[in-house]
């Protein structure tokens, strides 16, 4: 069994207890990686051990990257946000009920089948991009995608955060032993506004059925820049480039924000998520105006 890095521990410690992680632990607690530094081009470099709570509450980050800040402030609970880290939330393991249950083997535990595929339930994916049918758990990844964030990895070249994923078979594409050390964000855009929303049963503290994040920059009555991503619908965090293109160059309006998603649900149980995602997109775009 290979070693695993431990950052805040909020995902790993639960998997240690349930038997899903049994190898050696390399603790990053005293490895620094906690700084937030401006970059020469006017962006920011955020250390992998910076907490989610800092993403949510740091006033400089909140002004520069409101979509990131709002997303971070909406996930899990205050106590988890104070322990969980930027690196950890991007590289966390799936929350699939079967993966998290020691009674099962699945594609992500070294097994051959996917027990969730036979009994997907209302929480499964809409878009069947890979063998795994559980949605990707990272909300923060969605925000990183729409900011074109770049991940620094210790043993290989930096890559776009988007390129950490795009494989439904794995939760992320880093090799064993590779360490994500920082995230670099391009320079903030003056006048940008943002929205984030998740669909859940309770008022808070729940993994989303679906979620959406957006940023908009409007100049002279026209959208000059848009970022839109949705979660809870695929085994990878999903940026909607087509929606972004359709918005750009247009004057904002409710009609423009009412996007219809050209999706076919992989399971009848998750068909409801398509109108749900459409509503969330309209809601977050409205928030971002």
């Amino acid at each position: 069994m290979t070693a695993e890095y431990r950052a805040g521990g909020t995902d790993l410690m639960e998997r240690r207890a349930s038997g899903r992680s049994t190898g050696h632990i390399i603790d990053l607690y005293d490895q620094g990686l906690r700084s937030i530094e401006p970059t020469p081009d006017g962006g920011f470099r955020i250390g992998a051990m910076v907490t989610v709570d800092t993403l949510a509450t740091d006033p400089v980050l909140a002004k520069a990257y409101p979509a990131l800040s709002k997303t971070a402030g909406s996930l899990a609970t205050p106590q988890i946000r104070r322990a969980a880290t930027v690196g950890g939330v991007l590289l966390q393991k799936t929350r699939c009920r079967y993966y998290r249950n020691e009674h099962y083997e699945c594609l992500k535990t070294g097994g051959t089948g996917c027990p969730a595929r036979d009994n997907p339930g209302e929480r499964a994916v809409v878009l069947d991009v890979g063998p795994c049918v559980a949605p990707h758990p990272s909300s923060v990844a969605l925000a990183m995608l729409i900011y074109d964030a770049v991940a620094e990895v210790d043993r290989s070249p930096s890559r776009r955060v988007a390129d950490l994923y795009s494989d439904g078979a794995r939760d992320h594409l880093l090799e064993d032993g590779e360490l994500l050390t920082a995230i670099t964000l391009p320079p903030p855009v003056e006048g940008e506004r943002a929205g984030y929303k998740r669909a859940i049963s309770r008022a808070s503290a729940e993994w989303p059925l679906a979620e959406a994040v957006a940023h908009l920059t409007v100049r002279d009555g026209v959208i000059i820049r848009a970022g839109v991503a949705v979660g809870g619908v695929a085994a990878v965090p999903l940026r909607l480039a087509g929606v972004e293109q359709a918005l750009t160059g247009q004057p904002p309006s409710e009609e423009l924000f009412t996007r219809s998603l050209d999706w076919t649900a992989a399971f009848p149980e998750t068909a409801y998520k398509i109108p749900l995602a459409e509503t969330l997109i309209r809601d977050v775009l409205t928030q971002a105006l």
Binding site: R6, G9, T10, M13, E14, D27, Y29, D30, T77, P78, Q79, I80, R82, A83
Partner: peptide, 13 residues
């Protein structure tokens, strides 16, 4: 305030 059931003890150092 942090949840201590997921907090590695080593992080209290």
């Amino acid at each position: 305030p942090k949840v201590s059931c997921l907090l590695p003890a080593a992080h209290l150092d």
